[in-house]
C-alpha cells in the first residue's frame, strides 16, 4: 500500500528523513502518537534508538526535544500542527530562546482534508510561530519539494524550522507539475508566467484550485502569474521587489487564517520596502472557524474553490480597471 503513496507529501517526507538520517547521525525523531500519517513506523524500524515515542504529551515532547538539542543533537518533532504549535507554543518559544535548532513537523496543516473538523484543522500555526524571531516556516507543495525543504532544514538552515505538511493524496493539478518544482528558500517559484496579476499561495489544496481558476481567467483574457510560495515567513527582498514591480494586481491566498499568515507577511514586507504604492493588493484567507465536510464542500464554503476564487479575483480586478 505504501508504494501507492509514493507521490504523497507525507510518505515522501519520511523517505527523505530516513535518507538524510543516514548521513546526519544527530537526527532524533520525537512523536506524539501521530506517526501513522507519516508512516514514521518505518523510520522507527530502521532507527529504533533514534525514535522517541512520547505519547500524547506534546508539551513534554517539545521540552524534551529542547533538552536533546541542548546536548547538540537535532530533534525532529512530529504532531498535528493544531496540537503541536498551539498547545506546546510556550515550550516551542522557550526552546527557541535557547538558540538551538529544532525541526517541527506541522502535520495536517491547513484547512484540508476537512472531515475531522475544527479541533484538528490548523489555521493558526503560522501566526503562532511568526512572532518567534528565529523561526523559518515552510509549506512544501508536493512530494519532490518536501524532500528539498527537509534537506534545506537539516543541512543548511541555522534557525528553527516548521514544515507544514498537507495530508492526503496529491491533488490533480499539482500532480501534473511533478518535478518542475525547484525549492529555493525565501524565493517563490512561478508556476505560471503571466502579466498584470500575480498570485502568491502555497500548499497542494489551495494552489490546485488557483491553477483551475487560472484556466477560467484565460477566457477573460487575464493571465495571472502564480507563485508557489513555499517559504512562508521570510523573503528575498530583491526577488520580491522584482516580481511585484512587474505586476499591478497582487493577491495572496492563505491556506490559514487571514490573520498572521503569508498574506500579512508579504504585505508587511512590501510596506517595509515601500513597493506597495500604486499596486492593488488583496489578501485572501480564512476568516471564520473552519467548516467540517468534504474537500469540495469546505473549499466552496470558505470561497476557496476555483469558481469562488474566480469571482473574487475578477471583481477585484474589474473594480480597479
Amino acid at each position: 500500500m505504501q508504494s501507492e503513496k509514493k507521490n504523497w507529501i507525507t510518505n515522501s517526507l519520511t523517505e527523505s528523513l530516513i535518507k538524510f538520517s543516514k548521513k546526519n547521525k544527530n537526527i532524533v525523531v520525537l512523536d506524539a502518537d501521530l506517526s501513522d500519517d507519516l508512516n514514521l513506523k518505518k523510520f522507527a524500524k530502521i532507527f529504533p534508538n533514534r525514535f522517541i515515542q512520547n505519547g500524547i504529551a506534546e508539551q513534554d515532547m517539545v521540552s524534551m526535544a529542547g533538552g536533546i538539542a541542548l546536548q547538540g543533537m537535532l530533534p525532529v518533532v512530529n504532531s498535528f500542527a493544531s496540537f503541536l504549535t498551539a498547545r506546546a507554543n510556550e515550550q516551542i518559544y522557550n526552546n527557541a530562546t535557547e538558540n538551538t535548532k529544532i525541526i517541527y513537523l506541522n502535520l495536517y496543516a491547513g484547512l484540508l482534508p476537512a472531515g475531522a473538523g475544527k479541533s484538528h484543522q490548523s489555521l493558526r500555526d503560522i501566526s503562532l510561530l511568526n512572532s518567534i524571531p528565529n523561526f523559518r516556516i515552510f509549506h512544501p507543495l508536493n512530494y519532490i519539494e518536501v524532500d528539498q525543504v527537509l534537506k534545506h532544514c537539516i543541512f543548511n538552515e541555522k534557525k528553527n524550522c516548521a514544515i507544514r505538511l498537507s495530508i492526503g493524496p496529491p491533488t490533480k493539478e499539482i500532480l501534473k507539475l511533478k518535478n518542475r518544482i525547484n525549492f529555493k528558500p525565501g524565493i517563490g517559484q512561478e508556476i505560471t508566467k503571466g502579466k498584470k496579476v500575480v498570485i502568491f499561495s502555497y500548499g497542494q489544496y489551495v494552489l490546485n484550485e488557483i491553477l483551475k481558476t487560472v484556466e477560467i481567467l484565460k477566457i477573460k483574457n487575464i493571465f495571472p502569474t502564480v507563485v508557489n510560495m513555499s517559504t512562508i515567513n521570510f523573503f528575498s527582498t530583491k526577488w520580491l521587489k522584482k516580481i511585484v514591480n512587474k505586476h499591478d494586481y497582487i493577491f495572496t491566498i492563505d491556506d490559514h487564517s487571514i490573520s498572521g499568515g503569508l498574506g500579512d507577511n508579504i504585505l508587511n514586507e512590501l510596506n517595509k520596502q515601500k513597493i506597495i504604492k500604486n499596486k492593488n493588493f488583496s489578501k485572501i484567507g480564512i476568516e471564520t472557524f473552519p467548516e467540517c465536510g468534504t474537500v469540495e464542500e469546505v473549499l466552496k464554503y470558505h470561497k476557496l474553490d476555483s469558481k469562488s476564487l474566480y469571482k473574487t479575483l475578477i471583481s477585484k480586478i474589474k473594480n480597479n480597471r
Partner: peptide, 16 residues
C-alpha cells in the same frame, strides 16, 4: 518544563 527538558538532556547523554 524543567523535568521534560532534563529528561531530554539525559536521553541525549545516554545516546551519545
Amino acid at each position: 518544563m524543567g523535568i521534560s527538558k532534563a529528561k531530554g538532556m539525559c536521553w541525549a547523554k545516554n545516546k551519545l
